[in-house]
Amino acid sequence: MSDLKSMLAQLAPNGVPHKTFGEIGTFSRGGGPQKKDFQDEGVGCVHYGQIYTHYGVHADETNVFVSVDVARRSKHAQPGDVIIADTSENDEDLAKGVAWLGQESVAVSNHTLIFSSDLDPSYVSYFLRSAHFDRQKRRYIVGTKVRTISEYSFNKIQIPVPSLEIQQEIVRILDKFTQLEAELEAELEAELEARRRQYAFYRDQLLTFREGGALDSDG
């Protein structure tokens, strides 16, 4: 963090400018692939639902594919684009994004916006998870059961635009925190599983009786 402060003092002594998404990039809509089109190989595909369930801040490979024919009829995200889910059942998840860092373009489903800019795509993706962004987006959410945000509204939302060097340093720091969080979750899950096994062992011991009422200690 001290390095980032030094960089900000050197590269942004007068502060960091804020610009709207409409000023710094362009949006296009995804469209084409559906779940019924998924297969185990072919052209990589990102479905909007997977942005909530499968992907993190950035990705360089997909877990589903579509045929060349389906891909040909689909909209694509290019390396460096950010794929944003513009539909959700709740406000918290709405407008999460994944920075596409793969080598090839990917087919992108409906209910997405594809954002292209000169910003570091992972920086943009992290920003879409920030409280600063959340406060702004809530002004533009529409719908009742299904919540949506439009490209028109997105263009009005502001994002801090430091130098590319600072963006990359922020991504580096946040990636380290993300990795640490994943490691801690894995450790906690392992500990939880051990506790579950311990609980099951004692549960079965305490609820297993020999005829006559004594606890069965042979288990």
Score class of each variant (00 low, 15 high):
Arg135His: 14
Gly32Phe: 09
Val82Ala: 00
Ile84Leu: 08
Lys176Gly: 07
Asp3His: 11
Gln198Phe: 08
Pro160His: 04
His111Met: 04
Val171Cys: 03
Ile141Gly: 09
Glu185Tyr: 13
Ala131Thr: 08
Pro13Ser: 03
Tyr202Thr: 00
Ser88Lys: 05
Leu184Gln: 06
Gln167Ile: 01
Gln158Tyr: 10
Ala12Arg: 08
Ser105Arg: 13
Gln50Tyr: 13
Ile141Cys: 09
Leu215Asp: 03
Gln39Glu: 11
Ile24Gly: 07
Asp81Val: 14
Leu207Tyr: 12
Thr208Trp: 11
Leu180Ser: 11
Val171Ala: 02
Gly219Ala: 08
Pro33Met: 04
Val46Ala: 01
Tyr126Val: 03
Ser67Leu: 04
Leu4Lys: 02
Glu211Thr: 15
Tyr202Leu: 01
Asp86Ser: 12
Gly22Ser: 09
Tyr140Pro: 03
Ile170Trp: 00
Asn155Trp: 01
Asp93Ser: 09
Thr53Gln: 03
Ala131Tyr: 12
Ser105Asn: 12
His18Pro: 02
Val106Asn: 01
Pro17Asn: 05
Ala131Val: 07
Tyr199Asn: 00
Ala214Gly: 05
Phe21Asp: 06
Arg72Met: 05
Pro160Lys: 03
Lys36Ala: 15
Ser105Lys: 14
Thr26Ile: 08
Arg139Tyr: 15
Ser125Pro: 00
Gly102Trp: 12
Ile24Val: 14
Asn63Cys: 11
Glu61Gln: 14
Ala182Phe: 10
Gly31Phe: 12
Ala85Arg: 02
Gly213Leu: 06
Ser6Gln: 07
Gly30Asn: 02
Asp93Cys: 10
Gly49Leu: 05
Val146Thr: 13
Ala71Gly: 13
Gly30Met: 01
Thr87Ala: 02
Phe177Lys: 02
Pro79Met: 12
Asp218Gln: 14
Gln136Phe: 12
Asp118Thr: 14
Gln168Lys: 15
Pro162Tyr: 04
Ala9Tyr: 11
Ile166Thr: 10
Gln136Glu: 09
Phe115Asp: 04
Lys96Pro: 03
Phe133Gln: 10
Gly44Ile: 13
Gly56Glu: 13
Asp204Thr: 13
Tyr152Ile: 00
Phe127Tyr: 15
Gln205Arg: 14
Gln158Glu: 13
Thr208His: 11
Asp118Ile: 10
Gln198Gly: 02
Lys19Tyr: 15
Ala59Asp: 09
Asn110His: 12
Ala95Tyr: 09
Ser109Arg: 03
Arg73Phe: 02
Glu211Ser: 15
Gly22Pro: 01
Gln205Val: 01
Glu187Ile: 00
Ser163Asp: 10
Ala182Ile: 10
Ile24Asp: 05
Arg196Phe: 09
Glu187Asp: 08
Gly15Asn: 10
Thr20Ile: 08
Leu101Val: 08
Pro79Ala: 11
Ser28Pro: 00
Val68Ala: 15
Thr62Cys: 14
Gln205Met: 11
Glu185His: 08
Glu61Pro: 01
Asp86Met: 14
Arg135Trp: 08
Ala71Ser: 15
Glu191Ile: 00
Asp60Asn: 15
Gly143Pro: 09
Glu104Gly: 01
Gln39Asn: 07
Glu191Met: 05
Leu8Cys: 06
Asp86Cys: 13
Leu164Met: 12
Phe65Ser: 07
Ala182Tyr: 11
Phe209Met: 11
Glu23Leu: 09
Thr20Cys: 03
Ala59Glu: 14
His58Leu: 01
Ala95Gly: 04
